[in-house]
Measured scan of single mutants.
Amino acid sequence: EKIKSDFFELLSNHHLDSQSRWSKVKDKVESDPRYKAVDSSSMREDLFKQYIEKIAKNLDSE
């Protein structure tokens, strides 16, 4: 859970929106230790998708 929250924090530093693509974001964040803390690339992508869904819901509710 800490790894997930750290990863979300990392993503939040990059001002993403619901149109952001993992392939582009990954290049910007892959040197960060919070990125490396997530064991697998599929898990990183899953967390990215969860984060994008979360910010999309937040935008819808505003």
Rank of each mutant, 00 (worst) to 15 (best):
E1V: 05
K2Y: 03
K2T: 06
K2V: 04
I3H: 07
I3P: 03
K4N: 05
K4L: 05
K4R: 10
D6M: 04
D6E: 09
F7V: 00
F8V: 03
E9R: 06
L10S: 02
L10T: 01
S12D: 13
S12L: 04
S12M: 09
S12P: 00
N13L: 12
N13Y: 06
H14K: 03
H14P: 00
H15V: 09
H15D: 13
L16S: 03
L16C: 13
D17P: 02
S18G: 12
S18P: 12
S18T: 07
S18N: 11
Q19N: 15
Q19D: 13
Q19G: 11
S20M: 07
S20L: 04
R21W: 04
R21S: 15
R21G: 08
W22N: 02
S23L: 08
K24H: 08
K24A: 15
V25G: 03
V25M: 06
D27N: 13
D27F: 11
K28W: 11
K28A: 10
V29P: 00
V29A: 04
S31A: 13
S31M: 10
D32R: 00
D32C: 00
D32K: 00
D32V: 00
P33V: 08
P33F: 07
P33M: 07
R34Y: 00
R34I: 02
R34D: 01
R34P: 00
Y35I: 02
V38A: 04
D39G: 14
D39I: 11
D39P: 13
S40L: 04
S41G: 11
S41N: 14
S42F: 07
S42R: 12
M43V: 11
E45V: 06
D46T: 13
D46A: 13
D46N: 12
D46G: 07
D46M: 13
L47R: 00
L47Q: 01
F48H: 03
F48M: 04
K49M: 09
Q50I: 05
Q50P: 01
Q50H: 05
Q50T: 09
Y51Q: 02
Y51C: 01
I52R: 07
I52L: 14
I52G: 03
E53Y: 10
E53Q: 11
K54C: 13
K54I: 11
K54V: 08
K54N: 14
I55V: 12
I55Q: 10
I55E: 09
A56G: 15
K57Q: 13
N58E: 14
N58P: 14
N58S: 12
D60K: 11
D60S: 11
S61G: 15
S61V: 10
S61D: 09
E62N: 09
